[in-house]
Design a protein around this nucleic acid. Sequence first.
DNA 1: TATTGCGCTTAGAGCGCTCTAGTGCCATCA
DNA 2: TGATGGCACTAGAGCGCTCTAAGCGCAATA
Lengths: 347, 347
Amino acid sequence: MLDTKGRAVTGQSARGRGAKRPTLEDVAARAGVSRALVSIVIRGVAGASEETRERVLKAAEEIGYRPDTRARLLARNSSRLLGVTFNVQHAFHTDLIEGIYASADSSDYEVVLSALTPRRDERRAVETLLGYRCDALIMLGPESPAAMLEDLGRRLPVIAVGRRLRESSIDLVHTDEEAGMRQAVDHLVKLGHRDIAHIDGGRSPKATDRRRAYRTAMRRHGLGNCIRIIPGGQTAESGASAARLLLEDGESPTAVITYDDDGAAGLLDSFLRAGIAVPEDVSVIGFDDSRLSRLSHVNLTTVSQDAGRMASLAVHRAVARLSGDEIADRDLVIPPHLVVRGTTAAR
Amino acid sequence: MLDTKGRAVTGQSARGRGAKRPTLEDVAARAGVSRALVSIVIRGVAGASEETRERVLKAAEEIGYRPDTRARLLARNSSRLLGVTFNVQHAFHTDLIEGIYASADSSDYEVVLSALTPRRDERRAVETLLGYRCDALIMLGPESPAAMLEDLGRRLPVIAVGRRLRESSIDLVHTDEEAGMRQAVDHLVKLGHRDIAHIDGGRSPKATDRRRAYRTAMRRHGLGNCIRIIPGGQTAESGASAARLLLEDGESPTAVITYDDDGAAGLLDSFLRAGIAVPEDVSVIGFDDSRLSRLSHVNLTTVSQDAGRMASLAVHRAVARLSGDEIADRDLVIPPHLVVRGTTAAR
DNA sequence: TATTGCGCTTAGAGCGCTCTAGTGCCATCA
DNA sequence: TGATGGCACTAGAGCGCTCTAAGCGCAATA
């Protein structure tokens, strides 16, 4: 069997390596219609009779036609591509990616991933996406200086997830740290705790937010004089040493809220080694609802950021910007929720 | 300032949204050369004088030219694209991705990622990559039936990482489980252990490999009668319950090798709760060298799979296949190595 | 009867590159 | 002197799509 150009037409399973893949032209020839019409059918848009549609689809199927994304992207005036930068090291980013794929799917956009690795920085990752002429960028936990992000935002819609910028001209999707901390404190207070300490996350902006939120939440319960902040960090290690600090101190709190789940894991480990029972002696709450915290043997009560929701909001905001909607606010603040597991109990 | 087509030519920072991006044509007009020559310069291939090269680069810089990947891909007869499928949930995959980017970079191939999520299966992920006309596919921990992989392999070079297939016609990159287990047992024996138990990983092929390897390694040391296999699984949970089983049993081994790091984490936790000191009372070795095992408070001795090496081998094999090299063997078996940390000690 | 409109279809012009097959030009050599 | 070859450069034909404008046949309308 030969097509109009004299090359062999075979089913896809029989086609060997290197053989040219069938194109719209080939399908058109086989179905006895024009290339344009095949394009219409393949795209699934209106403009072809039911009968032709079936005939074309059948022909496409028979010769194993598969649309060429490269050509499609080039020919479209808009690429309908959503570029996503993410850090390969962050478990939370991968949770977000799941949601982004799902939302993009239903918005008829395609996703292009560009990873940050220790040897591939954000600038590089973004360059790649711009090369594909993505219509918009969703950046997960962007690390670039604010000015660079703003600059980028002037060129195309940019949505930064999990980062706060003041006076931003790009869209921001992030968690309401204050609400999260309030929920954690509320929960503990309801369980009868008063001496609730916070192991902080050091000097990062996010750590500052959470520290401040902790203070506010404590005061709201009239526990201003019980506020106790232990310097920590963003690693399990720092949680572990904070725990030791706490133990040496003698006057142990009855509950601890850590900066994040990693810190909580370190803390739990130290407590366990010191013979302190959790939650019997001390209640512990983490922050982030990472995979770690869900491990059955850790079973950590933690403040969860709703990854699915964040992803969906980010995609929808990008799509809205692309549709030219005028949206005044730049901040999308997501309320987190407390996931109560096994590390908190009544006093 | 206007270009040959009468549209405004401005620097990239001044260009607003929606304005057409400059093309080769624009650069050519500005530099006073042909489009083809600009292409030569931008690609960095031979065929332009040093003087012109500089002039073209300057012009490109001035108007903020950035190559259009879509057009470039379409025009090239080979896309020079390496498609990578990976599971967004697997930490090990993200380690591999780091290495893949690095190796592809130096081989002058570009990487396209396609993620597997709970709602996006492998078939879908592969479809996307085929749509981009990737020259070869690297599949991390592929989940598809062997027949489907073989089928795919008939269409283009496919490298499966971390999966074994017998009589495969696609390339396989995986760890030498036997060597890993041997190293673990050797290490323990050298430390004076004899009662070395194995908590297995259930019914998966990999678990079977490791179980068999454990038996072989034990016999090699004349410890055939000390072989003790406790049914486990692929979660921390299963490690924890296996530990309880071990403790109830009374006759505790002096060392345990688990199926993977997750299992080891569960085991450690159970031991800790039961007042069993590690490594003083029992030594523990995990498998995989996951991020978990590196956490300072876990500090797990484990068998490490060299992700960087595996990634580089996968890429190089793909490139070799694409260069048409005739390579007879399909299996690339990587020796793992033992990472000695804090959970093993002399008996 | 001429006109309009509609549904189905097609021709053909791009999209922004790469790559082959040249064209000049100049130095080299017989 | 003409032939040879190498270097710098260019023209132009794709790559496989999308999309606009237009064609065609047929029914409805003036």
